[in-house]
Design a binder for these strands. Structure first.
Lengths: 225, 225
DNA sequence: ACCTGAACACCGTTCAAGT
DNA sequence: ACCTGAACACCGTTCAAGT
């Protein structure tokens, strides 16, 4: 049942490379403009200006096409995160966190429907290992940044933050929001709460004043598992 | 292209009602155990022990079946939220927030793959109005609870919190996590950060606590819509 | 009122024939 | 090496025939 997801062969000639690019671009265009339901191989081939046979010469399944699009987008995400961390070197925690959140919003909001449809498509694809590798790569990048905040389990924190940020951006995108600053501010509060609020080992005291939060900044208890 | 999503007719006899239930249960079972890709009408009918024809007598499309499952699950969510708020009447903010988060986790983690697949399926269905109505209903329920925290736009806050909580539970579920207490604690920090940290804006006096970690450069917009 | 299952249409995929 | 498009298989949906 589980058909292949890997590209079938690499194009060796220039026109073949152009064919592959046309296929990927056509598929992405359909995902952004028409949605997942409209993504069928005949439609992709037609829009790309090639025959279905050519499509299947390079991609053994429709899912292989979506996989390649997802892989490219993931590479761009890692690059964007890397760049935003480099750009923020020497700045304060708050500034660097804001850079990260802004990068995530930019990455996810440019083609909102495409982004969402790709996330949905991921559920159909056997990409769990790659997803874990991606999270690990991001954890590595973000690791030394978060390390200063006393976060013990960076892998868990990275997973949680990605989930939180993604969930909020997607929901906002679906609701038609366009104000990135407003969105970034709300995400920033959630992320800061996650990273900076004291872990409730035995919850006796109610928090509710930022004074208490500020006191724990940079010296919070570590995650454990 | 947009085919109907509404049930075709209501069963009048007991055996017909049993047929409808069998169809819905079979579909849910397949979504939990085999995934969205394995959900086809022939398979549903076979597992339900009825013919495809019978299936189409009550549901005009495959999507109508998924829609009914989603609607039932949403009703259970509203009920669970209502009950958790009632159960926590008179308790502190922290205790009631913990009750809400625990209810959400229980609701979403019981059949994790089913829950995730239904969310994915929502992307294919024209349920935006109903989703907004659901969020409004939840905002109403949670409204007076959040009101005490000085949250201005309860609708936005509700949307964000649902997105945040859902995203984190889904990610944890996919990663195979089973420790609900640990998860609830992490979600609690993010939710508290979102609700309690000062907004990075001029309008902080209504919050009652203006000093804190989030005092940053610039002045972002306040909640509005 | 309810059920059945063969038949039809559509879309993913293949393959024999071409340049 | 690359391309084409008719043909095949599978799944969503219908419908004539049944109880």
């Amino acid at each position: 049942m589980q058909r292949s997801i890997e590209p079938r062969k690499k194009p060796r000639q220039a026109r073949a490379a152009a064919t592959v690019e046309a296929i990927l671009q056509a598929a992405a265009h359909i995902l952004e403009r028409e949605g997942l339901a409209a993504l069928n191989t005949n439609h992709i081939a037609e829009r790309a200006g090639v025959s279905v046979g050519s499509l299947y010469q390079y991609f053994p399944t429709k899912q292989a096409i979506m996989t390649e699009i997802i892989r490219r987008k993931r590479r761009r995400l890692v690059d964007a995160i890397t760049l935003s961390l480099q750009a923020g070197e020497g700045e304060s925690f708050d500034e660097r966190l804001d850079r990260l959140i802004a990068a995530a919003i930019e990455h996810q909001i440019e083609w909102p429907r495409l982004a969402r449809n790709l996330e949905i498509a991921e559920a159909f694809l056997p990409l769990q290992e790659e997803t874990e590798a991606l999270n690990q790569a991001l954890a590595d990048k973000i690791g030394c940044f978060l390390g200063h905040q006393g976060i013990g389990d960076v892998a868990v924190a990275t997973m949680d933050l990605i989930a939180l940020v993604r969930g909020m951006i997607d929901a906002a995108g679906l609701a038609g929001e366009t104000d990135r600053t407003f969105l970034a501010e709300r995400i920033g509060r959630a992320a800061r709460g996650y990273l900076l609020l004291p872990q409730a080992a035995v919850k006796t005291r109610s928090m509710g004043h930022s004074k208490g939060i500020a006191q724990r900044r940079g010296s919070g208890p570590t995650h454990r598992r």
